[in-house]
Design a protein around this nucleic acid. Structure first.
Lengths: 219, 219
DNA sequence: ACCTGAACACCGTTCAAGT
DNA sequence: ACCTGAACACCGTTCAAGT
């Protein structure tokens, strides 16, 4: 694989050496998070997997929080790409918003640990003075919101969705999806009492409730 | 203060000694969580505040996770009491559901750390074999759901809310509230772009969107 | 039954030193 | 500019021992 973009030198030696250390650290952190949750992400193990010492990460990230924020930035970007692709694929279909919602839920269920990380205290938490990734994280989250709002906006222009403040609609819809995902991930939906009494398998429940959400937005 | 209920002996000496160790540990953990988030809850500091050693908590809770689960159980119970009180106060008013929703949001904004704890990985996470508090936690969460569902159910019986599966309505409404609270707590609503472009102050936004949610449930 | 102090394993972080 | 190994402070947990 040849790195055509990025700040690293593009000579043959660098290309053969694979991705730069920073990228390898990021991938190691991503993998560890997915495998064992946040507590599995130790700088020692991140360094080991990246083939460097346990203090090497400090050359590329301010601290552990900053590294995790970088993982969150990547998560927001990937989710946004997925949602945008679903929107493009659905085009101006009447069910475009529905497909966008389903792609959002699919990402969350496929990457539960990353999804949780995205909505932790990270955006605000500035324990040691923010860190370089804090701004990037805010931007990534905003771009996701804007992508979702664009989908709502398009539906309104086409007359498929009822009129109303598109940012309000986006925030409400996003909130509902986030709640549904959260309750699914925390297994509230799997219990056989309380919220678990909701009829159907989790996938079926999510599908039905997404339809209900979309119905509320229809013209 | 005289402890009239509970398993502890009710002799004068016990009453003068104040709450038992287990309760003091629980209160210390609650306070530390509220003051500095989950990472401020160390067993050493919990023990110190409760006036015992740092290993004493292991006499009352299986491990740190189990202690935090007990805090989550208390949080669920308090939130449920608050929501139930709001429902009783509103009675069969047409705006009863609205008041219930507002009380839910108020609790979350007043106890952000506890609220976050309630919806972490705790319900499912059975890293060291569940722990005694896991079952209590599930029960507490289910009772909160049932209380909310009862409010929806009552509204439907009175004809104030439109017909439909009450558990579906409850799950949808709860999901939306949870999402709104999460985005508010993580400061997405305070930014001046992305979701921050939603017009109005956070309190105003929440109030307007709750009205929108309730409107969708009306008959 | 409840508690203690010492000890162990593990982790984030700093720093002087190397190339 | 990037990396290393040793060292430090801190934490969860275990355990033998005390009352």
């Amino acid at each position: 694989m040849i790195a055509a973009h990025g700040p690293e030198p593009v000579d043959a030696a660098a290309a053969e050496a694979g991705p730069p250390t920073r990228e390898r650290l990021l991938e190691a952190a991503w993998d560890l998070l997915g495998e064992g949750g946040p507590e599995a992400v130790t700088l020692r193990e991140v360094g080991r997997r990246a083939g460097v010492s346990r203090t090497a990460p400090y050359r590329h990230f301010q601290d552990k929080e900053d590294l995790l924020r970088a993982v969150a930035v990547r998560s927001f970007d990937l989710l946004r790409a997925r949602v945008a692709a679903a929107g493009r694929a659905a085009g101006d279909t009447p069910g475009a918003v529905r497909e966008v919602c389903r792609s959002y839920i699919a990402f969350a269920l496929e990457n539960p640990q990353q999804y949780r990380l995205m909505f932790g205290d990270w955006v605000l938490s500035q324990k040691h003075g923010d860190g370089p990734q804090a701004a990037a994280l805010r931007t990534a989250a905003e771009r996701l919101f804007d992508t979702a709002a664009e989908s709502i906006d398009q539906g309104q222009r086409e007359g498929a969705l009822r009129p109303g403040d598109p940012t309000d609609f986006t925030l409400l819809t996003w909130s509902t999806l986030h709640g549904l995902v959260t309750f699914t991930l925390s297994a509230h939906l799997h219990a056989d009492s309380g919220a678990g009494r909701v009829r159907g398998e989790p996938e079926e429940v999510l599908s039905r409730l997404v339809d209900e959400v979309v119905r509320g937005l229809r013209a």
